[in-house]
Design a protein around this nucleic acid. Structure first.
Lengths: 164, 164
DNA sequence: GTATTAATGGAAATGGTTTTCATTAACAAT
DNA sequence: ATTGTTAATGAAAACCATTTCCATTAATAC
């Protein structure tokens, strides 16, 4: 059946083409990633995968994520809360650039796409200049605004007592 | 002696003013931080501090760094290699903005200050917009270009064998 | 179907960071 | 300078995300 490879984007095909085997675990993990817009940690993914395929272990999740990151299919982010987050770089829901708003209090992460147009020109111009000046092969960039989200501002205000 | 507080920047004074005690360990750590332009990890700092004051332990380094970060005197970065890096935000050598070039292969970090002017306008404009739209209190931002440094490009080329 | 070997799971190891707890020492009051 | 209070400390243990080990399983090629 030629239509069989009509999986969400061609992730499975890509994996095979590079000489890796397509397994139930890898497929499940790719599915989770393609269905989520959140930035999932390895454990988040493990919990979801494990729910639908209990045979799959955490180790496999880590190994698969490593593979996908190395293949450039998944991006890995460190937001400073001690666990890495992962995001699919392919498929319908994917975003090309990763510009985040991170709450330093509760680690809430917002991926904004507004205003990105304005940023990109400048960022790409600078990327080229840096690339030349420092002899870097730049493959990616990352912009993070750090601060407090609305909730944490509110709860801070509360715990600061009659602060005003 | 009134001239005694002429320490490099007024870090010690700042610590006391907030109600914390100035100790030998904290002073040593602040010294290390103010003397280095590198992005030091907790252990880097520990090794340097330990060399001049062997009584100071790694735990104290971590605790002091946490204090300084909370006081806003030190910035903490995660470059994805599993250990946090720290950088003084005060004193003569300090940089206001933290724009980095990170080698994903060897974790080499370059803090560039070129071209920053061009970026800042846009980044600050966007910061305000995001702040309003998402109700964030943004205190900081971070720009990272990721890729391969010159050395790692070269060594990749070598290990790829007759690749061209 | 069989062989090959990549992929896997579970347990153990690793390594950066945090916690615990008894001890020490900074600062304020004297 | 002495004393009292309690924050700060060091060492060891705990923690926890991630990696490694190794025997077993299963995906692909034949």
């Amino acid at each position: 059946m030629p239509g069989e490879q009509s999986k969400p984007s061609d992730s499975s095909g890509k994996i095979k083409r590079v000489g890796h085997r397509m397994t139930a675990g890898r497929e499940a993990i790719l599915n989770i990633l393609s269905q989520s817009t959140e930035h999932l940690s390895a454990e988040d993914i493990y919990i979801k995968v494990h729910a639908e395929k209990p045979s799959i272990g955490l180790t496999t999740v880590y190994r698969t994520l490593e593979l996908l990151v190395n293949m450039g299919m998944v991006a890995r982010f460190d937001f400073g809360d001690g666990r890495a987050r992962f995001e699919l770089l392919q498929g319908p829901k994917c975003v090309k650039y990763h510009h985040h708003l991170v709450c330093t209090e509760c680690s809430r992460i917002i991926e904004y796409s507004d205003f990105i147009g304005e940023e990109l020109n400048i960022l790409e111009t600078i990327q080229e200049k840096l690339s030349k000046k420092y002899n870097f092969l730049i493959t990616n960039h990352l912009v993070q605004y750090c601060g407090l989200c609305a909730k944490c501002i509110a709860s801070k205000r509360g715990s600061d007592q009659a602060g005003g």
